[in-house]
Design a protein around this nucleic acid. Structure first.
Lengths: 239, 239
DNA sequence: CAGTGGTCTAGACCACTGA
DNA sequence: CAGTGGTCTAGACCACTGA
């Protein structure tokens, strides 16, 4: 596979920066010099350096020039589990058992419920994720009926509500909070473990253009599931 | 602030895709039509659409055309804690106490150690992160001396080894694994909690160009620390 | 005020791939 | 083989900002 010229220029500098040959703060040549060096037009140089700037490897300032960036804030890409897909990838049978399903008004004294549904209805949908009929995670979900009217007719069992939403509702923003909790008496019973077992708690709120769609709290068995995140600074966060 | 034309084209389609006006699989006009529509050159259209493709919102195929992408794999950006910075942002005093620091050979029977250091030396650096002298997290770290010879002279206390590495060593890839564990007897003692308390376990391996730099395992108090990830599909994963 | 990057043009040829 | 995106050119003017 032939490499294009802007890719070559990009990878030249990427290699020098990552190897430490060029250190943070070091100045890169100006575009007009690089265009002579590579024997190409300035647009080609610009495309290469713009990509490096987007990737966070360099900082560019008008009049000031181009510099190797300070090591990045460490953000990384987290592959959030699509439980249905993951369980099936393992070759196991996935099943979702609904524990509670009811449409009700938001409890206005609970800030998160009030924010999600306002004066409209919300669908409460609690359930258990099973892999080969063994409990994997417990889920408490609230969905804004106004934002997702189609949810009323949806059936779960083969797929989880999360997977259903993913496949049907475009979303623009999400916030995930991860912590560790001890299983309560009731949670322990549902998950078939002893009370107090360390579990991973994942809470996520999802928006579509500032309208809140859903809020979910999932309790995973600590040893049954690991969240894995991978990161390489040169690749944007896409799958 | 004036918006450039390629930004406008980009945000036009971004809005239509995110609002659901254009659904996954829908075809976008070809570049030569868009250039007429916007009254600009093809390069400008191309810059806008290339950015959308990099962001994962559209798929482009030669001869085939440009299409709205299927909803993304849900990956999100995780802000990995730089403990030193986070504790200070809270207005608390950060301190790192070294529990063990020794240079030794890798135990070749432990795969992760063998991979990290091979036949070279590794620095074992265990310690406790304190906020206002209260334990926050316990850390077990191994560093390849060959990859980071400067580590030998580094002093910790005001900053954590993780922060030191971040500020001094460029890295290209990292893998993070998050799970829930119960504090062991020794861990509980160091963290000043009762044995069995649910803790968040973060394990991370960091590479620079396929050379492994460091492996760390951190045990956080479950209620003392939450990992938060945010995601908006239009912004690449940079901070 | 001058050096630098940001953007844009109006073309061109090529590479891929699906009809 | 023809339609589409990928890349590239050789310019141009502008916006910002630091010397």
């Amino acid at each position: 596979m032939k490499q294009s010229l802007h890719e070559r220029i990009r990878s030249d500098f990427e290699a020098r920066i990552l190897s430490g040959d060029m250190a943070p703060g070091d100045r890169l040549p100006i575009e007009r010099d690089l265009e002579k060096y590579y024997g190409c037009s300035r647009m080609t140089v610009n495309k290469a350096l713009s990509a490096l700037a987007t990737a966070g490897l360099i900082d560019r300032r008008k009049r000031g020039g181009t510099f190797v960036a300070r090591p990045r804030v460490h953000s990384m890409v987290l592959d959030v589990p699509d439980l249905t897909a993951i369980v099936r990838d393992r070759g196991q049978n996935y099943r979702f058992v609904v524990i509670a399903r009811k449409v009700r008004k938001a409890n206005m004294r609970i800030a998160s419920e009030a924010e999600l549904a306002g004066k409209g209805d919300l669908l409460q949908l609690d359930g258990l994720h099973l892999a080969n009929d063994t409990p994997l995670a417990l889920e408490y979900r609230l969905i804004s009926v106004k934002a997702v009217p189609e949810i009323a007719e949806a059936e779960f069992g083969d797929i989880s509500p999360g997977t259903w939403l993913l496949q049907n509702i475009p979303w623009t923003e999400a916030e995930t909070r991860i912590s560790a909790v001890s299983a309560s008496e009731n949670e322990a019973k549902l998950l078939a473990v002893v009370q107090g077992t360390a579990c991973l708690c994942v809470e996520r709120t999802t928006w579509r253009k500032s309208e809140e769609i859903t809020h979910v709290k999932q309790i995973f068995l600590g040893d049954a599931y690991d969240l894995v995140a991978r990161f390489g600074p040169s690749e944007p966060a896409r799958g």
